[in-house]
Design a protein around this nucleic acid. Structure first.
Lengths: 346, 346
DNA sequence: CTGAAAGCGCTAACAT
DNA sequence: ATGTTAGCGCTTTCAG
């Protein structure tokens, strides 16, 4: 139990000032910069504040343009992704792990469309309700970096390719892992390797596809059919059906899914079609969600460091808020996890 | 793009007032209650506000004791649970699904200990940084309901037994499902059915245990050994080792784990011990995480409605904030999901 | 119905 | 080193 202020009004700096025998101004200085006050009175003021159980008013501080100690996360997706998607919970976990040490809170807002999204960023920062933003799910032609720049809002982009904006960016680099995956498929004799791309508006989906295309080229393979699965289980299932609908010798013998979830959808369609993994069709996913290693067969996938993306993003944003110049680019490297679903090289 | 206020100061009600040819007071009334202003001027004021791209200042509003449109979630657990635990992501998902429709944001704060926890609640609400709280993970002798009452903070408790506090409570009632589970075990001839309890400080862990004990009694069985697994995978594994360490005819033939995660830990220990599920040891979990149906064998478990708990909690809290009297008790019923791990009744 | 003015808790000049 | 005084943007009396 703190001071027993059982319900009465909270003390203000005026109360503290009175008790310490000084004025509000002195209290404000003593409690903030600490300069412009003699050591003696500063201590007297500090003591008075503690005795009264005083704590600062966020609102009054904010009204004077002071930072509140909050970072904003505005997410333009269905709240359900928290339940299904691999990224967000881990990402949030990473953020919170650094914020819980600092005196910072996270403000989360899910928005349905671009217009609400823009308005939310503007309001949140316009009134300094948040000190800065962590930006995820960067889209092709995303207008947020420009808007945030215009607003003058501190922000770091997480999970986007290097150079995709002029904001400090944390990249989830899976190029080498994807190359390793394609090599493995190629070594096993696969020629037609399909790709199921996630949400086509997302930069990370595009990037995974590019890496796949590039690796295919390097191994002298024609980038096989590409289907879109929207990063969902059903999307992955439907994409797989479209792939299977191809006639005999055009049908891919391996599929690289842009997310584990889509690959799970693929598993069920392949199973119903009587196709064995990896004997008939080899499969690989992306993310390495817990389920991947428990699936049957255990799924080969590219592990991306969701938590680390969150913690690195939060760390850098916090440093920016303290006035430090952020690294413009930070790269975390994805790792290839070989399991049974991709089969063995010959 | 909204109004092209490219970086200059945001308009205030003074600006709106000037443009509409009235005073600040009139603007405030027009934009809030709407009363005390003629329809004509109100429209004029509204128009001026829109033209100027005005939006209210959270800080100034808060300074006058107005609600900000935020609900608080303070969590005294390691941020890692977001990554591993089944509950939080889904719960948050439920919350966000109702909040995204309303003009509300979620403020999340992870705290390490009881002292920080208390201070966080006090500060957050003391300054009306949040309008109310959603309280989870109610512990035995939890002091938060009393504190929240003392603060006068609107709050609803989620996932706790009915009557565990005098706050409006949303209960995850699994009594019948657990009874059904024990019945199934009993019908299959099991006599010694162990229980692996979650975090012993948590009310929900205690509640699951009580339901199990009661059901055991109803079927004339002695509540077998109880081990503690702390709701983690390793905890569940260790608890399972302790169970297996028992001598021959004292060794349980079935285990009811207080969470799927702990059961997963159990799976691996049982497997390493060369024990088949369910032939040698029958297993059931609790939660129904996605992984449960993908485990091998697929896991029998009690499905609890995490998302629904979040959405119901948010819904009720929002109603309270609007002045409605909340239902003191809301009950969601858990559902038994029979899969292979529990074996067949004879 | 509308205007004027006080004040919410705090910061930041500006005096002294 | 300390006190004094304006505000920050808004709500809410209280007059008119």
């Amino acid at each position: 139990m703190t001071a027993g202020n059982t319900g009465r009004k909270r003390p203000t700096i005026s109360d503290v000032a009175r008790r310490a025998g000084v004025t509000k101004g002195a209290v404000s200085r003593a409690l903030n910069s600490g300069t412009g006050v003699s050591t003696g009175t500063r201590e007297r003021i500090r003591l008075a504040a503690v005795e009264l159980g005083w704590s600062p008013s966020y609102a009054a501080r904010a009204l004077n343009g002071k930072p509140l100690g909050t970072i904003g996360l505005v997410v333009r997706r269905s709240p359900e992704i928290l339940d299904f998607d691999a990224f967000f919970p881990s990402f949030l976990s990473g953020i919170e792990s650094v914020l819980s040490g600092e005196e910072h809170a996270t403000v989360i807002r899910f928005v349905p469309d671009a217009q609400t999204e823009a308005a939310t960023y503007e309001r949140l920062f316009g009134d300094r309700f948040v000190d800065g933003f962590l930006v995820t799910d960067l889209r092709v032609d995303d207008e947020r970096p420009a808007m945030l720049h215009r607003l003058g809002a501190p922000a770091v982009v997480v999970g986007a390719p290097e150079g995709s904006s002029d904001l400090p960016t944390i990249t989830n680099d899976a190029e080498e892992a994807i190359r390793g995956l394609v090599r493995r498929f190629a070594d096993a004799g696969h020629r037609r390797i399909a790709h199921v791309q996630g949400d086509r508006h997302m930069l990370h989906a595009l990037q995974r596809r590019r890496h796949w295309e590039q690796a295919m080229g390097e191994f002298g393979l024609e980038p096989g059919p590409v289907e879109h699965g929207g990063y969902t289980i059903v999307g992955g299932a439907q994409a797989t059906e479209r792939i299977l609908a191809r006639s005999g010798d055009e049908r891919p013998t391996a599929v690289f899914y842009g997310s584990d979830l889509m690959a799970i959808g693929g598993y069920s369609v392949l199973g119903e079609a009587g196709l064995a993994i990896p004997a008939d069709v080899a499969v690989a996913g992306f993310d390495d969600i817990p389920l991947a290693s428990f699936a049957s067969p255990p799924m080969t996938t590219v592990r991306s460091k969701h938590r680390a993306l969150g913690s690195a993003g939060a760390r850098i944003l916090l440093d920016m808020l303290k006035g430090q110049a952020p690294p413009l680019s930070t790269v975390l490297t994805g790792e290839l996890c070989i399991r049974d679903s991709s089969g063995d090289p010959v």
